[in-house]
């Protein structure tokens, strides 16, 4: 028993070393975000005694930070809500209709999950570009529903199948329409899956780069797109870039610490399905 304890301690120390390694990039970003270029060149590890807060105000200005943050929040929230509504409705329909149409639709939805976005993006831009509906936030929300509905429907479907059909029947005998049954009885029971669906989609949409880079123009841009302005300025001003990257990361990290338990539970529930 003693031996296992020692081994456990050793393994735990290894874990601590690894945790320090994992945190190292964040440490570098934080300490260098308030430094001058010359200081960074000389010693990227040092902690400065005269923080250069102007890096932050300049980064906020260059990224149009507040506007991009609002854009990101707006797009993520509306897309996630729309995905929850559409995919729970569709999943309920597919799970409760044992027709051939339902099973074929379900198979197509599942199969579509391995289609990479890259296989769609070229005709996608050709099609929607020529219709003139690219370059606006509502269309981006519409596209996210299209790309996100398959996996979310799949998650809901697995859960709804396990809800006894007798519940629906009882509601229908009491005179509830099928929509009322769904809204008042089924949907409230789905809240664990709804949490999973919300979290998985929110993380994806918040961080997505390729699709919004094809759809959005200037003022509508989200945080990840705006952060990319620092790609070119890199060689000229590291401190500014680090400040910009830091403020781009802060919102999602705050969100994580507020929702930590739910996020972890959401990911493990999503993976088991």
């Amino acid at each position: 028993m003693k031996r296992t304890k020692i081994i456990n301690r050793l393994v735990f120390s290894l874990g601590t070393v690894l945790a320090v390694l994992y945190a190292f990039p964040f440490f570098l970003v934080i300490v260098n975000s308030v430094k001058e270029k010359r200081e960074i060149r000389n010693d990227p590890l040092s902690i400065t005694l005269e923080p250069l807060w102007e890096n932050f105000s300049e980064a906020i200005r260059r990224m149009d930070y507040w506007q991009s943050l609002i854009n990101s929040i707006f797009i993520t929230t509306f897309s996630v809500v729309a995905i929850i509504i559409t995919s729970s409705l569709l999943a309920y329909y597919l799970a409760r209709n044992n027709s051939r149409f339902s099973s074929i639709t379900f198979v197509i939805l599942v199969a579509s999950m391995i289609v990479p976005f890259q296989a769609l993006m070229i005709p996608f831009v050709g099609l929607f570009g020529s219709l003139g509906i690219l370059s606006s936030q509502p269309s981006l929300v519409f596209f996210y529903v299209g790309f996100g509905v398959a996996m979310s429907t799949f998650l809901y479907h697995g859960f709804i199948k396990n809800i006894p059909f007798e519940l629906d029947e009882a509601a229908s005998i009491d005179g509830a329409s099928s929509f009322m049954t769904f809204r008042k009885i089924i949907f409230p029971m789905l809240s664990p899956v709804t949490a999973t669906v919300a979290i998985i989609n929110a993380l994806w949409i918040w961080n997505d780069y390729l699709l919004p880079s094809l759809v959005l123009v200037q003022d509508d841009r989200t945080l990840p797109l705006r952060t990319y302005v620092f790609y070119g300025t890199y060689t000229s001003d590291y401190g500014l870039a680090m400040a910009g990257l830091l403020i781009s990361m802060i919102p999602i990290i705050i969100f994580y610490f507020m929702m930590q338990k739910r996020i972890i539970a959401g990911i493990s529930a999503g993976a088991v399905k």
Partner: peptide, 25 residues
């Protein structure tokens, strides 16, 4: 009517965004 309430809109969006570009592609 059931199809219209539950499945029409999600499937329409899915088809427009994913299936149509896939086949055209």
């Amino acid at each position: 009517k059931k199809f219209g309430i539950f499945a029409l809109i999600p499937l329409a969006i899915f088809s427009i965004v994913l299936i149509v570009p896939f086949i055209r592609g």
